[in-house]
Design a protein around this nucleic acid. Structure first.
Lengths: 103, 103
DNA sequence: CTTGTATATTATTATATATTAATATTATAA
DNA sequence: TTATAATATTAATATATAATAATATACAAG
């Protein structure tokens, strides 16, 4: 196994750029809350609105942002749109954050 | 062990607020890079400047910010100021991020 | 075809952050 | 003392983000 200590500076810079962008996308109370709820399964926009306590517009915009970052996918069924976590790494991240900061 | 699924909404809101603030502080390529380098041990401002590739002023400002968030501590020795990670949770976070996103 | 509901989009404004330049502070050494 | 090196602070500006309101779209039911 290659240890972190062998990572070159340019690899590190690239990794940090990528990871910082991911963290930026979820470093907002409601966006993080959305992700935490989705970790338990798919939800509609309206459900997330009630669970996370934001306006319809802001929740929709947050979801769009996280979808653009390829964290989420959406599926339309009739009037409702179901969002779910697409990238398994994001699930891992949510669980790690919980373990580290919320026990 | 209490599972995450039993967390109440207001607990979740509070946790998300706190964790989002932490993530926000490190969701910047150079600040994350600083943290990654400090995970390996204390460094001076000048060392971090070279390692992370920012101006003297910006690195100093980043360090100040992360110190305010109680992530780092500093110690002056002569002309040099050594910064190190203060909160062990931040070390855990850096290692988790590495495991999830950088392998 | 019109009404109601869920979601998305757009535009606007306020606020926060990033970046840079310039200057200040502190300690050391000549 | 004066000079120099390391770090910190301040100020200015540009850019990004957050929050909100208003409007638009898409679908379903009647």
């Amino acid at each position: 196994m290659k240890s972190q200590r062998n990572t070159t500076t340019s690899e590190m810079q690239n990794n940090c750029k990528n990871v910082a962008a991911i963290l930026k996308a979820i470093s907002h109370p409601q966006r993080l809350m959305i992700l935490c709820h989705l970790e338990k399964g798919a939800k509609t926009v309206g459900e997330l609105e009630k669970l996370c306590g934001g306006s319809q517009s802001s929740i929709s915009q947050f979801l769009k942002l996280m979808k653009l970052e390829a964290m989420l996918t959406s599926e339309k069924r009739g009037l409702f749109v179901y969002y779910r976590i697409h990238d398994p790494k994001m699930k891992k991240l949510v669980l790690s954050l919980y373990k580290i900061f919320c026990k």
